[in-house]
Design a protein around this nucleic acid. Sequence first.
RNA 1: GGGGGUGUAGCUCAGUUGGUUAGAGCGCCGGCCUGUCACGCCGGAGGCCGCGAGUUCGAGUCUCGUCACUCCCGCCA
Length: 612
Amino acid sequence: MHPFRTHNCGELRSEHAGEQVRLSGWVHRKRDHGNLLFVDLRDHYGISQCVIDVSSELFPTVEGARTESVLTITGTVVARSDETINDRLPTGRVELRIEQINVEAPAQLLPLQVNSDEDAGEEIRLRHRYLDLRREKMHANIMLRSNIISSIRRRMIDQGFNEFQTPILTASSPEGARDYLVPSRTHPGKFYALPQAPQMFKQLLMVAGFDRYFQIAPCFRDEDSRADRSPGEFYQLDFEMSYVTQDDVFSAIEPVLAGVFEEFAGFGKQKPWTVTKAPFPRIPYAEAMLKYGSDKPDLRNPIEIRDVAEIFAGSDFKVFSGAVAAGKTVRGIPAPGAAAQSRSWFDKLNSWAQSEGAPGLGYVTFADGGAKGPIAKFLDEARLEKLRELAGVGDGDAVFFVCDDAAKAASLAGLARTRIGQSLELIDEEQFLFCWIVDYPMYERDEATGAIEFSHNPFSMPQGGLEALETNDPLDILAWQYDTVCNGIELSSGAIRNHRADIMYKAFEIAGYGQETVNDEFSGMIEAFKFGAPPHGGSAPGIDRMVMMLANEPNIREVIAFPLNQRAEDLMMRAPAPVEVERLRDLSIQLSPSAQRALDEEAEKGDVESNE
RNA sequence: GGGGGUGUAGCUCAGUUGGUUAGAGCGCCGGCCUGUCACGCCGGAGGCCGCGAGUUCGAGUCUCGUCACUCCCGCCA
């Protein structure tokens, strides 16, 4: 007989009755009746009830085994009597009579309870992550992640993609996020950087003549975390293709995303959520900013913002008409059914808008063929009729107004759209609604300095190519640049790349970088482009975010086995940590006095604590 | 770097306008219990109320500072 198990803990059924079997697993729960004792033995696969009574000499051993101890139990499978069958357990029609037991590893008192759904503090969960991961929900989340990744891999390979690895120790990339740096021992004073993404490598693979690359790629960015942004590192489904247009990229990846989401949309849900079928809607950036006030719209919210500047232009509402005359705009946010809301509901939205820095949130309500609200009396019937038409509203509805310059108005209107949609419960959450945001502007003006800079990704091909760069106003140039958005979350960003050295130099020149800078900062890639680079493009959906959405978790750390905490520390492995002076010497590194002082203070504090 | 929330038993939390000895559930230890499956019943141990100042006759409670965790802003081409 195998030393540990003949079956797993989720396997035993009625047909095994009478067999001599061996199970290994953790003590999930014990029910000690004094003379009769039940042990729920748990492993990755399930739970089996084992039973022993006082007549056995093994009884004290089982009684003494604490929760989460690891046991190997040998015995006979017995069918349970009808009244003792547990239909909630797949193995609940049988139990194992304990005839032999080996305590493989006893467990101490637990810092968190594995067999309970009770929330434990995150610090304790991360410090003892191996225990946290034993718990049902976390175990399921991590398995979901594993299954999603193998599904992605299968689907990508089926689409003709090839999996490659790219370096982890590489060069620091200019712009973008802060890099994680790794000091070089062999080159004193020089540093590697961990890749923020394999961006340049995947482009170089295209230049190298491979086609259809993908990788489940680790990415490292030294930026502060958020609930949906894991600290330090995360994973992308990174892919790139040669000789493609934007439409080719979309039609290659849409079936993968739609397929994966359809496959897993039922995880932990009463009924599977609906998923957008390919092809996903394509929304130009400018339209998204107008209609949704965001370049990552949540399409589950039915509200669409309208430009209603013309209604206020020349009107008696001087605050708005004056602003419109001065070049500002007015955005209208329809609120279907909101006319029935109380005065305090409108007041609450108004004070919310003020907390966002706006003067307020004006509105008009429509009822009984007339219009009410603080602004209504300033608008004549023709203007009100035009408003009904533009905003698509009628009796029972309301429209809110935001007046500012276009960018600010769009942004506040977008926030208001979300807030109003939630407040009126207009959002059917149980769906995954995808779209592409396309036609991003290539450049934008820095508010503070007035300088022209890249608005998204400097490696994107400008629409119209070199000619557009040479002849158009930079702020009017669009890029072959696109984002995948699902339920208001940016899932990926991608582009048709700029594969021409001459266009690259020109594009950077407009953003204020000379040829030498490009040669310095992107030497590998710009060189490569001088030896025949294929037109290419791709994208990189975030794996962690996809899993988070499919698992319906509000926090990305719930779908990562061993995440860093918010301060990018590993509480379990104790990273980052100080190192011996000798090792720093190897690396030609000396700590600053302030860093040394901080370490000394911390060490002192640690000593005091450990002496107690 | 800035703002909000939280910090009380091993864990999750309650704790009134500041007022005697700080509670509950789970876990732990002991006792009883031969059909439970979140077993049940009885008993017990376990607290620098994050830390440090201050106000007060008196602080878990109020004030200030500080630390930790977390959420958000900045940041994330």
